[in-house]
Design a protein around this nucleic acid. Structure first.
Lengths: 202, 202
DNA sequence: GGACTGACAGATTTCAATATCTGTCAGTCC
DNA sequence: GGACTGACAGATATTGAAATCTGTCAGTCC
């Protein structure tokens, strides 16, 4: 038996309870029961149920952020790095959706609950995109006058392949082709030798 | 009083009932009551409640399809036509969302109910996109080896600005900038003089 | 005879009572 | 004295009985 109740132990128990009962049924009392303490003790570490759920969500998202990391292998074009990063993100979300639908649904609800946490998630991943695009600008492979908003545009344009609202389409047999088509369009849009707007004749 | 009950009269009454009570509360009995007939009569024209709702939804979407029409003005580049088409679609959906949230929500529910109707909606609008991109290929302003799947890619890349799941973000003060950034990226991706993949140095 | 009604069976929804949960805090126990 | 308990008030969720709705169809009415 643990010396004293820690925030980490509560988070682990909460994750387990959420996995077992789902987001609609999981209660603070359940978490306390799993830990063998009274539910009042849980409130010494987290001020509200919402804060507890938010902390669990942040913990789960940080795991994604860590696994998505940079990935600037030597000898690859920035376009390849970008394509690979987007593909890895898509694969990770799609696998999570198909292999553990209940857990995926649980975290979809949790993320939707807190705009703070979803803003944090967005900031982390668009930040990674920004560093990739900045690298492309450095090598003159990409051109843009605003790296930040271009990174946001790449994020927005690929929404269908990372936003949980569209998860049901990830099972479609042609979704990989759709992904490739969108990413090709976006990568072409980032490339250096674009012509001045409105005079694109051969 | 009408001679005999028509499908059109039922559809109009259903729309009114949906507007008044919302999709969760609207019943076939309400529709019959509004028409001054027994609910059995409604079933002479529509086999099920679902079929009735689907017919109303299709009627509503057809109105959008008609208003979105081509728009190939003389003397504009295809890029401008495409940008204008996407902007008009976005404006229409955004206005509908901000000016009559209840009706917007009602039709969001109805469209989500029937995959047949939403597939129809998608087919109509991606069809219009296809004709725009085909025109751009004709004038050598755009290049693609598959007009159909490129049109689908443009649709998918602009998902955030036409899919009702993202309607809450349409109120964001920076959403027009995000729209412009995504559309610029996409239009640049469509332009003719793209370089061969993977050798984009200056 | 064909448009319409109204009663019906089974499915779904509503509503109010009952039970459970959240968040607090005075008090217990090392 | 600080970690923890357990009883409490108000808010939320569950439940099951009653009401309503969907879809059918035999029968009425012009």
């Amino acid at each position: 038996m643990a010396e004293t109740l820690t925030a980490e132990a509560i988070l682990a128990a909460t994750e387990e309870v959420l996995r077992r009962y789902g987001p609609a049924k999981a209660t603070v009392v359940d978490v306390a029961k799993a830990l063998g303490v009274s539910h009042g003790s849980v409130y010494r570490h987290f001020p509200t149920k919402a804060a507890l759920r938010e902390a669990v969500t942040r913990r789960w998202l940080d795991d994604i952020h860590a696994h998505m990391a940079p990935a600037f292998d030597q000898g690859r074009t920035t376009a390849e790095v970008l394509r690979d990063w987007l593909q890895r993100l898509f694969d990770r979300k799609r696998r999570s959706h198909s292999e553990d639908l209940e857990l995926f649904t649980t975290f979809k609800v949790l993320v939707a609950e807190s705009s703070v946490v979803s803003a944090y998630h967005l900031e982390c991943l668009v930040g990674q995109l920004t560093s990739i695009i900045a690298a492309g600008v450095e090598t003159h492979e990409f051109v843009t006058d605003d790296v930040e908003s271009t990174a946001q545009a790449v994020w927005d344009a690929t929404l269908m392949f990372h936003h949980p609202a569209h998860a049901q389409e990830w099972g479609n047999p042609h979704v990989q082709e759709q992904f490739d088509a969108v990413v090709s369009l976006v990568v072409d849009g980032l490339r250096y030798n674009r012509v001045p707007s409105g005079t694109g004749d051969a």
